[in-house]
Design a protein around this nucleic acid. Structure first.
Lengths: 338, 338
DNA sequence: CTGAAAGCGCTTACAG
DNA sequence: CTGAAAGCGCTTACAG
């Protein structure tokens, strides 16, 4: 069953069927309806390979999930990204694009470049747990379109590489202000990696909030975006007899580690120490107590990324993408200072 | 840059280049190497659309993530499936297949059928949280290849629809025996949906274990595979003053609910009540106490599904797939009877 | 070991 | 409003 068969059945030329497929107005309504009916009866759908071959567009976007063999395996802790992936697929499909998913190693961009070169995809987007600067560079320098979900996975911004932007500073400031409003004065922060832009922005938000509230004392533990850092920070403060009454954790994982250390030390969250996270990972609802945190609008950010890629693919005028804001999710890990 | 350009550069006919691509032995090694070198220099990769058009094979497998609007949104709780998806992608890629992911509504198989009819995929596999019998039926009756990850999402088995099989009965028996070995005699079970085959198999495993251990008293709470059921079961038993000393939860979600209810009632797990789950969802590591549960080998099951689909696509002789076994993961929610 | 021709199912100008 | 021709980049027999 191809376009020719449909044409024969309808008693018209192939081109007329073509016009119906392209919703061209220059076909008599009766003819159009007759042809549509025949296509429906025969469950005809144009062969995409043929169409792609001539159109030189695939209407599919690659999703590259990049693994770092040095780190955890893909998906083993994708509490954050699973919802992102769902949103990407949905947004793409709304725009008429399919999503081709692959998993690859950071060290080898070859499989990704192959997808572009063999014309399997029109553009790609990257989800990763590590820095993918080199991969992005090789894709861009080969002249292909690529976007990134996480601003932290790249060391330098490239104007043609869309990345949804989160106002980290603002978010951390909101979190810190929340603790200040609860009456806390001895507020610490556990930071993410020093070289990580988001980590620094969040630190700045914390500092700014303290400054505006005229709280001179800062308590900064230089950590990483992992549970371990939260755990160590609490132990450090306990051993120094300098445990703060409230802690801004630069992400939820850090908060989990801090929570664990506090629990083990027989301290209560939030009665002894208030804890606030960042990201609003699924797990935050399940800890005891449930973690108060800053929600990152991942679904919207993913949709925005897809939108920007499609604009590039289709040569539409680039609309300046919005910035995204983190919102406070109040749960049970913060309490007023007694 | 196409096959013709390569041929020109190498000073041979297109067909010779073709032969090199197909690893045909009938090309002089020198010629072969020269051509390979040229292809490499020019980063040539054959256009997949052209190849697909003539081969009538796409080398891509569709992954249909089916949502039930009546239930939770996709991925919002994919603690179980995310690792499955990762495994499917990896296995497919090892076999030389790409994975095209779509999300669709249970009520409308049309977008899925379209993918087959327009020749975007050679086969498909379904991940779902609900019964997808009608979708499977429409795919099969249209003559396409489809497989299912979860045996519970279908009411009747169709011989041509591959589904990895888990020995539920055996798993539940292992779980129950573990509690028996810890000295428990008053062991209850909270079941899944009555119409769910896995729920019944797990119930049977429990019953069998009790029987073999000569424990006459059964305590069955007919529940569902959701947190709520575990919560209700515990409340029911408390109100009846019939709380067992150990509970077999038919899945981890049920165990989370039971744990919550026990906590709220001021009872300790595992000191007052031992709790064992089933599935080994990621969250089980994070509850307090960490949940002892039965691991389901999802990665291997997903790989097996892909393998079976590829065998069908490529008309290979179907190898009888293995059955999979759940294994005990000891954590901290079970203790010897005092 | 190598070549020339036909065809996969569509789309794209070009005509009328 | 409709048609006939050429071409997208490959693969597949068929010859030699």
């Amino acid at each position: 069953m191809d376009i020719f068969d449909i044409a024969n059945l309808a008693g018209v030329s192939r081109k007329t069927v073509q016009r119906v497929l392209n919703q061209s107005p220059q076909v008599k309504p009766e003819t159009r309806d007759r042809i549509l009916k025949i296509m429906n009866e025969h469950q005809y759908h144009p062969n995409v390979s043929a169409r792609r071959l001539v159109k030189k567009k695939t209407r599919t976007i690659g999703l590259f999930i990049i693994q770092d063999p040095a780190k955890h395996d893909i998906y083993s802790d994708d509490l954050f990204y699973s919802v992102v992936i769902g949103s990407m697929i949905r947004s793409s499909s709304e725009r008429g694009y399919n999503v081709l998913v692959t998993t690859t190693d950071v060290t080898d961009p070859a499989p990704i470049l192959k997808l572009y070169r063999e014309k399997s995809i029109d553009a790609g987007m990257i989800i990763s747990w590590t820095n993918v600067q080199s991969i992005v560079d090789s894709i861009i320098s080969a002249g292909f379109i690529v976007g990134l979900f996480d601003q932290n996975n790249v060391s330098e911004r490239h104007p043609v590489v869309p990345i949804p932007l989160l106002c980290n500073e603002e978010g951390a400031k909101t979190a810190t202000n929340y603790l200040i409003e609860l009456g806390h004065k001895d507020i610490a922060i556990i930071t993410g990696e020093e070289e990580n832009p988001a980590a620094n922005e969040r630190l700045n938000g914390y500092l700014e909030a303290l400054k505006e509230a005229d709280i001179p004392e800062q308590k900064i533990f230089k950590g990483r975006f992992v549970e371990q850092a939260g755990y160590e920070a609490v132990h450090h403060w306990i051993s120094q007899k300098a445990l703060p009454t409230a802690i801004v954790c630069s992400n939820d994982l850090i908060a989990f580690g801090a929570l664990k250390a506090l629990n083990e030390a027989g301290l209560s969250v939030p009665d002894d120490v208030s804890l606030i996270g960042f990201d609003n990972v699924l797990l935050t609802q399940y800890t005891t107590p449930a973690l108060t945190t800053m929600n990152v609008p991942r679904v919207e950010m993913a949709a925005s990324l897809v939108e920007q890629l499609v604009q590039q693919i289709e040569d539409e005028p680039m609309i300046k993408p919005p910035s995204f804001h983190a919102a406070l999710i109040e749960r049970n890990s913060c309490a007023p200072l007694k």
